[in-house]
């Protein structure tokens, strides 16, 4: 099957000499929900900018569903919908006009464009705002407007560059639900985000980019399996004067009612509960200290930094 996106040896050096991409390569398979992660300035937006034709590449090859962005640009672009990080619509235009105009750029006639704009504006909860100037929308509504605009030509590949940045939790979860639905209907999705919980919850595969290089490209499942130690927080029923001794575990008392315990994958949690129970310590609740993917992400980026320091 032809990959939804093929990136081969992609390089970008800006005019000021900054080398944003140092020859990255990866594929995104059709139907995938793919996360492209990395710290600020790692090269994520440059990569997506090149795929979206907003940034000129220095060298390398980009194919969208087999269509080369250099030699078959129009067909490649027809497959692609883009939701950028920054708002980039005419703030003085009405919401529905923005969608209909964008449809026109893809050769969609006004009648069909009006029908599709109604469909997507309703799906994204913006139909009531269709005659409002875009500048009057809230931040979350503006993000949803950009998603509706990117979908109006029904692309096979949707690129979302931090789509939920600055969006409240309730809206973020409704956007996740919407994205899961369109992915289930066959749209391939590539997502960049700083919310690793978002990537873990939505995506099946992942590439981590740092300093212009891909430092990891695998499935989220296999990545999480590499996590050897997890830190759990235990909320206690009664106050403790000091941290209890648990054989083989590193235990910290962060406040009289909260324990922090590092648990290696091979150890499991049953032994922790047994030992706590034997010492008469009642646990009310337990949670991960941080998102699992976040721990891995930090360790991978730190490894990359250490390698660079040692070179």
């Amino acid at each position: 099957m032809t990959p939804a996106l093929t990136i081969e040896g992609l390089r970008k050096t800006y005019k000021n000499g900054f080398e944003a991409l140092k020859g990255i390569s990866f594929d995104v398979q059709e139907g995938d929900f793919f996360a492209l992660l990395g710290p600020n300035g790692a090269g994520k937006s440059t990569t997506l900018g090149i795929v979206s034709s907003l940034v000129n590449k220095t060298s390398g090859e980009v194919k969208v569903f087999g269509y080369d962005l250099d030699t078959d640009k129009a067909m490649a672009k027809l497959q692609l919908g883009v939701v950028p990080q920054e708002f980039n619509f005419n703030a003085f235009e009405k919401v529905q006009d923005i969608i209909v105009t964008q449809a026109g750029y893809y050769g969609i006639g006004r009648k069909v464009a009006l029908e599709r704009s109604e469909t997507y504006l309703k799906k994204l909860g913006l139909w009531e705002k269709r005659n409002v100037a875009a500048r009057q929308l809230s931040g979350g509504m503006k993000r949803r407007l950009m998603i509706a605009r990117a979908l109006v030509h029904q692309p096979k590949l949707l690129i979302l560059d931090e789509p939920t940045a600055g969006v409240d939790i309730e809206l973020r979860r409704s956007m996740w639900q919407f994205l899961k639905e369109i992915n289930a209907q066959g749209t391939t999705i590539i997502l960049t985000t700083h919310y690793l919980e978002e990537a873990e919850s939505l995506c099946r595969n992942i590439a981590i980019i740092d300093k212009g290089l891909i430092v990891e490209n695998t499935s989220i499942k296999s990545l999480l399996q590499r996590l050897n130690t997890e830190t759990f927080i235990f909320d206690l029923a009664k106050e403790l004067p000091s941290a209890p001794e648990l054989s083989g575990y590193s235990v910290r008392l962060t406040d009289p009612r909260t324990l922090e315990i590092d648990v290696e994958k091979k150890q499991g949690l049953n032994a922790v509960f047994n030992e706590l129970s034997q010492q008469g310590i009642d646990v009310l609740s337990m949670r991960n200290k941080s998102n699992r993917l976040e721990e891995l992400f930090v360790s991978l980026v730190e490894t990359s930094l250490n390698k660079e320091a040692n070179q």
């Binding site: 979206s52 034709s53 907003l54 640009k73 129009a74 067909m75 672009k77 027809l78 692609l80 883009v82 950028p84 920054e86 708002f87 980039n88 619509f89 005419n90 703030a91 105009t101 964008q102 750029y105 893809y106 050769g107 605009r149």
Partner: peptide
């Protein structure tokens, strides 16, 4: 204005020659 507000990007991502 199209450049300044960045909605030139609407045209650049689309297959408009």
């Amino acid at each position: 204005g199209t450049k300044f507000q960045r909605h030139i990007e609407e045209l650049l991502v689309a297959p408009v020659p």
